[in-house]
Simulated assay, not measured.
Amino acid sequence: MTNIVDLHTHSTASDGLYSPTELLRQAHAAGLKTLALTDHDSTEGIEEARGAASELGIDFIPGIELNTDADGGEIHVLGYFLEYERPAFQAILKTLRDARVRRGQRIVELLNEQGIQISWDHVRELAQGSVGRPHIAKALLEAGYVQSIGEAFDTYIGTKSPAYVPRYKILPEDAVRLINSANGLAVIAHPLTTPGLETLRTWLPGLQKAGMVGLETYYGPYTHKDEESLLSLASQYRLIPTGGSDFHGPGIHPTPLGGRFVPPTAVERLKALQAERQGTIPPTFELPPPVEEK
């Protein structure tokens, strides 16, 4: 089945390896007709991506991905069709990005303390935009400490590794509300990866009450059985099933750009809901203090 939709991608504006323009060029080469850019905590790549999409005839959706934590695990929240230029929205994103910088600096410090000689300045050069662990992984690869990006995570900077540093944590409901404050549409990302099906069931009522409208059902390595389970949940809670590759660049995730089939009806349903919200005044939102590490 030919795929023409990818609603989960990243660029150098956060922790992807390709610029927004190059990402769109690769999307065009892969035969994609609709693409959403969903960088972590950043909308800095959207204007460049929109311009490239226009030149290439790709239907472009401005998006974002926010990382959050709750009892039972971690959950990521995607936002689509954002009115991303709203000053209050951008101020909160800056707070989250600044926390990413502090986290990245501390990771590099810990690596240096262990005799791993990479520099923070070089990591920032690699990042170009919002810094993330993939940029530190790339610095480790360039310096010859690892043979792949995956090995860098497994050995040095992954969750249970010696240089891991927790991030600034917000609750998933707050991420949903933040996206709503920019008139965006909130969707739970890779729900079987984090937190898992049973934990997800306990979270869905609260997330839906906060304003969540979708569930990423067609994702990367998910099996047909996984899809069926998520489609059942989406139907039960009247959520829009969405999907994408979670593409960051070669060697970071196993699914290539456009490598996961996403039904075009996902885009149609998101667009219909977005049309209903156009011109409405979104709710205000203030970022609460970060969730304390337990």
Rank of each mutant, 00 (worst) to 15 (best):
N180V: 05
T223I: 00
Y219W: 13
P254N: 07
D226P: 01
L200A: 07
Y237H: 11
Y222S: 09
I179E: 10
G214A: 09
P264S: 10
L273P: 01
P250G: 00
G196M: 02
Q208Y: 07
Q274P: 00
H190E: 14
R177E: 11
D246I: 03
G220K: 11
T255Q: 09
T202N: 12
G196W: 07
E276K: 11
E268R: 10
S245F: 08
S181H: 08
I240R: 02
S235E: 15
G211R: 03
D246Y: 08
T223P: 09
T242I: 04
T265L: 12
I240L: 04
E228C: 00
S181C: 09
A272E: 15
Y222E: 07
V213F: 09
L207I: 08
H248N: 05
G258T: 01
P205Y: 14
A182W: 00
R260Y: 06
F247A: 02
S245C: 10
D226M: 04
G196I: 01
L230F: 09
K225T: 12
T242L: 04
E198V: 01
T194I: 00
D174I: 01
Y219S: 09
L230W: 12
E227K: 06
L239R: 03
P221E: 10
D174R: 00
L230E: 08
V187S: 11
A234W: 06
Y222K: 08
S229R: 14
L185G: 04
G259W: 02
E228M: 03
S232W: 08
Y218G: 05
G244K: 08
A182V: 02
P254A: 01
D226Q: 04
V267K: 03
G251Q: 09
H248I: 01
Q274H: 15
L239T: 08
L207M: 15
Y218W: 15
V267R: 07
E198K: 12
M212K: 04
A210H: 03
G244P: 02
H248Y: 07
T194N: 15
N183T: 10
I240E: 05
